[in-house]
Computed example of a mutant assay.
Amino acid sequence: MKSYKINVPANQEMDDWFEFINESLKHNSEVNNLIVDFNYVNFLHTDDFVVLACLIESFYIKGANVSFIGGTSKFNNHLNNFKFKRYWEDGFNRENFTISLNRTTLCLWKLNRDMMYGYSMFAKKYFNDTFMSNKDLLPLSSNLYEVFNNIFDHSNSEISGYVITQYFPKINKLSFSVCDFGIGISKSINNYRIKNNQKERRFQGSFKIH
């Protein structure tokens, strides 16, 4: 039985996350037990969560058991509120809506073709009903659905992908992030960074509500 520990970066530096994902993916076919160490992590943004979920999924679908250690008490409370640590337990349906105990965060969701329209419409209704009544959130549902379609039609990813949507009351911003490990992603990112001398960017959408 082989165990492997991934050390989640405690910052939002894109280069650190890029190296973290690249290094971790080298080991996802030879591990029986995956240990996710949050170290001193106090906060992760929506894009970090979906990238991490895809990484964990890449180990899980190849037979690894998943466990979690570390993280500050505040951060672990956030994880517990939207049940992040339960997603890779036996019998947990990651392709269903798992309602968060934190009203500002819509569930982390593993993309499923049959439910992608339902999720995009549910996200619109959820945030209209909670924080943004009488606001036009049709662009949110439209963008989500378009991104989901692109993933299923073009990514050729063994992981369908993950999405999470969160509202940030202090800055009045609604943010969603979607990630998949589609074919050619790593090569494309490397070529882009070399050509433009820029850092990796994951797909994220934000809506400032006025």
Rank of each mutant, 00 (worst) to 15 (best):
C54F: 02
Y192A: 14
G91M: 03
D129V: 04
Y192I: 11
W109E: 03
Q12W: 12
N128K: 03
C54W: 08
Q204L: 07
A123Q: 11
V8P: 00
D180S: 08
S188F: 06
D37F: 04
I194H: 01
A53C: 12
V41L: 09
F20N: 12
V8R: 00
T72F: 04
G118P: 00
S29T: 07
K26T: 02
Y119A: 13
N11K: 13
F127A: 10
L106Y: 14
R103Y: 04
I183G: 03
S160I: 00
F82W: 10
Y145S: 01
S160N: 14
I6R: 02
V51D: 00
Q198E: 10
D48Y: 02
L55Y: 05
T130Y: 13
D129R: 10
F203Q: 06
C54I: 01
Q204W: 03
G205D: 07
I171G: 03
S100I: 11
N80E: 14
R193V: 14
Q204D: 06
E19H: 13
E200A: 09
I69A: 02
E57H: 05
G161W: 02
V147T: 15
N33Q: 10
E19T: 10
S73G: 05
F82G: 03
Q12S: 10
R94L: 03
H154N: 07
F92T: 03
K110N: 06
S177H: 05
F92M: 02
Y87G: 01
K5M: 14
N96R: 12
Q12T: 09
I194M: 08
R103M: 11
C179L: 08
F20V: 15
E146K: 12
N191T: 01
H45S: 04
L55W: 04
Y126E: 08
L101N: 06
E95V: 02
A123E: 11
M116F: 12
E95P: 07
S133C: 03
K110Q: 10
F49G: 01
L55A: 07
I21E: 08
N65E: 10
K124V: 13
F68D: 06
L55R: 07
D48E: 11
F43V: 13
R94P: 01
L137W: 12
D153Y: 06
